[in-house]
C-alpha cells in the first residue's frame, strides 16, 4: 500500500479526505486497541486532516491520541 501523501488528500473532497485517512488509520488503531478501534477511529477523524496525516507518520503521536480518545471515551461512559 503506497503512503498517503498530503497532495493526495488535498486533491480529494473533504468527506473523501476523512475516508482516505480513516482507511489508513483504522488498522493502526486496531493494533493498539482492537475492541474499540471503530469508535476510536471515528473520534480521531474529527481531528484536522493535516494533523491526521502527521499522526499516520508518527506512531508516537498516534499512540498519544488513541490514549487521549480512550480517556475521553471512558469518562463519557462513566
Amino acid at each position: 500500500q503506497e503512503p498517503l501523501t498530503a497532495s493526495m488528500v488535498a486533491a480529494a473532497l473533504p468527506h473523501e479526505q476523512k475516508q482516505m485517512i480513516g482507511e489508513r488509520l483504522y488498522p493502526l488503531v486496531y493494533e493498539i486497541h482492537s475492541q474499540l478501534a471503530n469508535k476510536i477511529t471515528g473520534m480521531l477523524l474529527e481531528i484536522d486532516s493535516s494533523e491526521l496525516l502527521l499522526m499516520l507518520e508518527s506512531p508516537e503521536s498516534l499512540h498519544a491520541k488513541v490514549e487521549e480518545a480512550l480517556a475521553v471515551l471512558q469518562a463519557h461512559q462513566a
Binding site: H15, E23, N38, T41, L45, H76
Partner: peptide, 22 residues
Amino acid sequence: GSSISWPPEFHPGVPWKGLQNI
C-alpha cells in the same frame, strides 16, 4: 437536552458519516 453528538464509528470500506452535521 444538551447531549454530546458522538462521532460515529468508522468501519473500513463503509463511507464514514462523521462530517455530515458540520
